[in-house]
């Protein structure tokens, strides 16, 4: 499954990141150690301020760590970014309003200098993958929030990166749409064999999607627990009522409680 023979998609050693603010330093990440194997689906979960998005942004080279080591696909995050090794899905769809859906999805391909025909073909293919066939000529505002977010996932996938970074992609959607997209995302992951790193603050979402759940805690941002899920790769929605599922959820909840002092 792993390309280039690299087994570890992400390798984080003693990573820390401190922001200097007017109110003094903020320890966003402290002594973080993490290993993500190729093909894994890893979720970061924790209360706000625990550094889960920051960690993801460090992986994406959108933020510079102040200490420790990190490699993505065996190279530094910057090299990985320049090699276009990952696709990033943000909290909001961030589609460009002046481009049709197809041209939005083809945006990274344009930047990478692909030809017109291939761009169109790939955009169509990935729109089909996220069930948006027939919407390619529409503009973002003509689509619902869930459809827009699906288009942004297609945009992240269309240049076929090994790694998919998703930062609370479904956080702004209602629960019904969210369930639906979660199911689709799992199928997509199964079909493509990508490595997915996923940030969420929903326990059921994390447990339902992930092979590994990373529980994080704030002040300083650190990892409390890494839970390997015993659930099978095939997961229908009703797996959420199974005892195994509830057991994992219970562990996550305990981890969160242990790391969180409820002083807010």
């Amino acid at each position: 499954m792993a390309r280039n023979g690299v087994e570890r998609a992400v390798d984080v050693r003693d990573l820390s990141l401190t922001f200097q603010t007017a109110d003094g330093p903020v320890y966003a990440l402290s002594q973080v150690n993490l290993e993500v194997k190729a093909g894994d689906f890893v979720s970061f979960i924790g209360p706000s301020g625990c550094g889960k998005t920051t960690l993801m942004r460090v992986i994406a080279d959108l933020e510079q760590p102040t200490g420790g080591n990190i490699t993505v696909n065996g190279v530094s995050p910057q090299e990985a970014r320049l090699a276009r090794a990952y696709g990033y899905v943000f909290q909001a769809p961030a589609l460009y309003p002046w481009r049709s859906i197809e041209r939005n999805v083809a945006l990274p391909l344009e930047i990478m200098g692909l030809g017109r025909e291939e761009r169109r073909e790939r955009a169509r293919k990935y729109l089909e993958l996220v069930n948006l066939t027939g919407f390619d000529k529409k503009y973002p505002w003509q689509l619902s929030g869930g459809m827009q977010q699906r288009a942004s996932i297609a945009r992240a996938l269309c240049f076929d990166p090994d790694l998919l970074l998703m930062d609370e992609p479904f956080g702004a959607l209602d629960e019904i749409v969210r369930d639906h997209l979660n199911e689709q995302l799992l199928q997509l992951w199964d079909k493509t064999g990508k490595t997915v790193v996923f940030v969420t603050h929903s326990i059921p979402e994390a447990v339902f999607l992930s092979t590994h759940i990373v529980v994080m805690s704030p002040r300083p941002g650190r990892i409390i627990d890494i839970i390997e899920s015993p659930l099978p790769r095939e997961r229908p929605l009703d797996i959420r009522e199974s005892p195994e599922f509830l057991e994992v959820a219970q562990r996550v909840r305990e981890g969160l409680r242990a790391g969180h002092s409820y002083d807010e």
Partner: peptide, 14 residues
């Protein structure tokens, strides 16, 4: 342009 859009371009190494 917003932060998200610019981060997006950065993630493509544009």
């Amino acid at each position: 342009s917003g932060h998200l859009e610019r981060d997006l371009m950065r993630s493509y190494a544009a």
